[in-house]
């Protein structure tokens, strides 16, 4: 998974995979948690620019990481959602939990 950490803002941007299903979710969780431990993250951005598909497994990935970052007072946002992913966010109520841009 590609990512970048903007030191100045404490901002970790995670580039989500092409397909965020149960199979990919396992890798993303592990890698994301490693990065959250490694860097002093004040805001976490999930970037869906490359993602064409997401199912309910993706919801667990996002909520789980939200908890980890918010525990230390951090802020979470999701960006660049396509129509299918936007619908998943809306139907699951994820849109009410985290900011979407």
């Amino acid at each position: 998974m590609d990512y970048r950490f903007e030191k100045e803002y404490g901002c970790l941007v995670l580039r989500m995979p092409e397909e965020l299903d149960h199979h990919q979710a396992e890798f993303v969780k592990e890698e994301a948690d490693g990065l959250i431990l490694k860097y002093p993250v004040r805001s976490l951005i999930f970037d869906f620019a490359d993602t064409r598909f997401m199912d309910s497994s993706g919801i667990g990935v996002i909520i789980g990481r939200c908890k980890n970052v918010r525990f230390s007072g951090g802020y979470v946002k999701a960006v660049n959602l396509n129509g299918q992913i936007e619908r998943i966010f809306r139907l699951s109520g994820l849109k009410k939990i985290i900011e979407v841009e």
Binding site: S56, I59, G60, G64, L91, S92
Partner: peptide, 14 residues
């Protein structure tokens, strides 16, 4: 514990 969201059947129905 596996961070399952419990939305699987809800999505199939939707």
């Amino acid at each position: 514990e596996l961070e399952r969201s419990g939305m699987g059947f809800a999505f199939m129905e939707a």
